[in-house]
Design a protein around this nucleic acid. Structure first.
Lengths: 354, 354
DNA sequence: CTGTTAGCGCCTTCAG
DNA sequence: CTGAAGGCGCTAACAG
């Protein structure tokens, strides 16, 4: 029972050579058939396909990557996201990848920007992704961006705030969306509206605030600065922000929390004040995370097209990969802006009359 | 300006050969230094490391995978999970992977078991994972399990219900945890407790119900069957389940929803009935997802050690890989059971006295 | 302790 | 339209 000296392959199934032998052709022909490049006589193709099926041949990913100098993998860089956001994004991104026979590899990192130095060097460098998707707030970390650019890997930034003409980006118009929401509240008859700002590090926060203020301007409404309080996108900060708003001498009749988590916190605050939402106080959120439907009353909120953004990101990336070969005419950076949608549920109604 | 005939490498940086040349050694020595195998003289090692640094050398993932016959990637198979669950699991799993220089690749699939056939064949086969982690409820899909086993890839099932002696599993003791929670409610003085069951397809549902009933038995308490209503782990089903419970002639003084989403629904139902939680009705959940803290009042719930489970899963998998070489003594399947923890918040108090 | 040889499985290039 | 030759970057196995 002498073992052959030849190393025993670990590849569970057949290799391209086995298929070639079985079909009576060269392995190149098999390769061409499988990759649908070049031209192969129909009859030959069929013979190859039959052999593939007979041997249950599956190409080896690593070998293909090595030879083609492509990993067929996209990296997803993120950091400390909200659960609803990431899970929706992932689901959609994975689906989009699969359609293109790509795979999505996760890289999350420490909560501080410093941790990124290691993360970048170790993951980005060694995993040689074909492209990278960067979720907020990482999409605004210049350290990360620079490291990626230094390696020349194509990347898409999701919802970045910092401008960049050289890289792809997928965004929503936070300002416009916030303005629309505020206008809707004004249209319901609210005149004193409280606003809970988002995390100062997160670029969208400021844009949403601008939208809030713009709507007031457009409606020629006064806007007390005491009506705009700081929040941090967390439930707790929403609760505290709403409490300080409700402690005001002249209470607002409605509160616009700049994300759903904080809106949920505002709901809790209202309960503590024994105020009935929405009859005595309207509350709206932003994002339309699953939480928006899970609380009571269900939140009127601004839907971010997260799934669409994920799909777009994958699409843009893979597109820019295929045209990368011809150095000259690489795709120009795309900056897609996707539309939001106002979701009307139960938490916004006209203000009570005295 | 004649271009060399040699193909221009796409590898952005240096290769192992460049490092070898720079350090004046063979590439094998470089390999040994980098992989920390075999022994290398200290001085040589230092020379190599210096060269690595000087050239900013990063090993090529694909080449290493091909040569070592390992992909250094773990697949995560999941399906339609709750947002909180998956995001917590991911965060922890990715961290654990990175420590071992592994990467996590996502594969989610259609909501039906049928969709899996394709998913399995296309992903599992071509991506050649070193190991696979399977989240519930997929961990109980026999079709999936069989397909994976057919390929002989190591895998870990998370929270499976179906027994399997041959494969690794990481579980919690759902029954015991539910019993503990129920006992806590009884200890608070509740005698009529409503129970909202989980999704019938999900194995944990039944176990949690058994625990609920066991606690009653142990306390020698009667248990009306009308107190146990069907739910589906969704917010809506919790709302509806709680409504039917509150419509009973003899209302329960507390409701045990077998996950947090349904508990949030029960909270909403209580509001509709104008009942004050927890003073007039206690409500508890299970899982301790972020939602548990986001609702008002914050839910008393049973914490699942999701992060620990993820870490364990990665650990078990990578462990079983390294010992796989010596065919004879492969690691025996591990069945780890991780402890839950009762998290006391605001939604469980003693029943009101008449 | 270190180097040489020979691939891993696939694909690019070039010749026919 | 098809095949032969050789390389992608790295490492197992075997010498020395």
């Amino acid at each position: 029972m002498a073992r052959s000296r030849r190393r025993v392959s670990w590849q569970s199934g057949a290799t391209i050579k086995d298929v070639a032998r079985e079909a009576g052709v060269s392995s190149m022909t098999v390769s061409r058939v499988l990759n649908k490049v070049g031209s192969v006589r129909d009859e030959t193709r069929e013979r190859v396909m039959a052999a593939v099926k007979a041997l249950d041949y599956k190409p080896n990913f690593s070998a293909r990557s090595l030879a083609k100098a492509r990993s067929f993998q996209l990296g997803l860089f993120y950091d400390n996201p909200s659960a609803g956001y990431i899970s929706e994004f992932l689901t959609s991104a994975v689906r989009a990848c699969r359609e293109q026979r790509y795979h999505l590899v996760l890289e999350n990192c420490g909560a501080t920007e410093d941790d990124w130095a290691d993360a970048i060097e170790n993951n980005l460098a060694e995993a040689n992704y074909d492209g990278i998707i960067i979720l907020p707030p990482v999409s605004d970390f210049t350290g990360v961006i620079n490291a990626i650019e230094a390696r020349g890997i194509p990347y898409v930034r999701i919802a970045p705030t910092l401008e960049s003409t050289s890289a792809h980006s997928i965004t929503i118009n936070d300002e416009q969306a916030a303005q629309q929401m505020t206008a809707a509240m004004i249209a319901e008859g609210h005149r004193r509206i409280g606003f809970i700002k988002g995390h100062p590090d997160h670029g969208a926060s400021e844009a949403r605030l601008r939208g809030f203020m713009a709507a007031h301007e457009e409606a020629k409404l006064e806007l007390d600065s005491e009506l705009m309080v700081q929040g941090y996108f967390s439930y707790r900060s929403g609760l505290e922000g709403a409490e300080s708003l409700l402690n005001l001498d002249a209470r607002p009749t409605a509160i616009f929390a700049s994300n759903d988590d904080m809106a949920a916190g505002a709901l809790a605050a209202a309960h503590r004040f024994r105020m009935n939402v929405p009859d005595e106080l309207s509350v709206v959120g932003f994002d339309d995370t699953p939480l928006a439907r899970a609380v009571w009353p269900a939140l009127t909120t601004m839907r971010q097209p997260i799934a669409d953004m994920a799909e777009s990101a994958v699409e843009v990336l893979i597109q820019s990969l295929s045209s990368k070969r011809t150095e000259a005419d690489r795709v120009p950076p795309q900056h897609r802006i996707l539309p939001c949608e106002l979701i009307e549920r139960e938490s916004l109604v006209p203000p009570a009359r005295d």
